[in-house]
């Protein structure tokens, strides 16, 4: 029987490559640190831009997109919350395809983050829905594989996308 709780970092990285992502802009996130960010930093097919604060990443991503490059942002949910004004303006009002992989720290409710005992985590889906932003969950390898077509659709439609990574991807 298939393990629906397995989420491997390589599945996420393969999805990024499948969507022809060239740049990943990141502030380290404990959720994705070992499974995604560390192998990504060594991957010759993805260019990593390390930034000081998540809001910067929104601006850099918009500039890359305007220059014809595909990019995604890899951050922790706390950084998503810290970047709310830039998300409001650039992703939502400008309708730029700002695509974010957001790690849900603690991962205590991987099947439904709304059930997390952590206030910040359990507010993420209601917050994204209030913004009117498309989102998906990456709970396992099948959902990680589905990131590639979702990213392609976001770029084709010029609309933002948030992918919530609900458990610690394995390295």
């Amino acid at each position: 029987m298939k393990d629906t709780s397995q989420l491997r970092g390589v599945s996420i990285l393969n999805a990024l490559k499948g969507a022809e992502i060239e740049y990943v802009i990141s502030v380290p996130d404990l959720t994705t640190s070992e499974g995604v960010l560390r192998p990504l930093a060594k991957d010759p097919h993805l260019k990593l831009i390390r930034v000081c604060r998540e809001e910067e990443a929104i601006g850099i991503c918009a500039g890359l997109l305007a220059g014809g490059k595909r990019a995604v942002i890899l951050i922790q949910y706390t950084g998503f919350m810290a970047s709310m004004n830039a998300i409001r303006a650039i992703a939502m009002e400008y309708r730029q395809p700002i695509c974010m992989l957001v790690g849900l720290l603690f991962a205590d409710a991987p099947e439904d983050p709304r059930q997390s005992v952590n206030y910040g985590v359990n507010r993420m889906i209601p917050l994204i829905e209030a913004l009117g932003m498309p989102y998906r969950l990456a709970r396992n390898d099948d959902e990680a594989a589905a990131i590639a077509p979702a990213l392609n659709q976001a770029f084709e439609r010029s609309e933002p996308l948030t992918i919530l990574i609900t458990r610690y991807p394995s390295a």
Binding site: G59, A62, G63, A66, A89
Partner: peptide, 22 residues
């Protein structure tokens, strides 16, 4: 002229993205 910086403070970040892309 690129003016769509969205949020105050982010002009240089947009510029960095443009500079890397081109």
């Amino acid at each position: 002229n690129y003016v769509a910086v969205g949020a105050m403070g982010l002009a240089s970040s947009h510029a960095l993205g443009l500079a890397l892309a081109m």
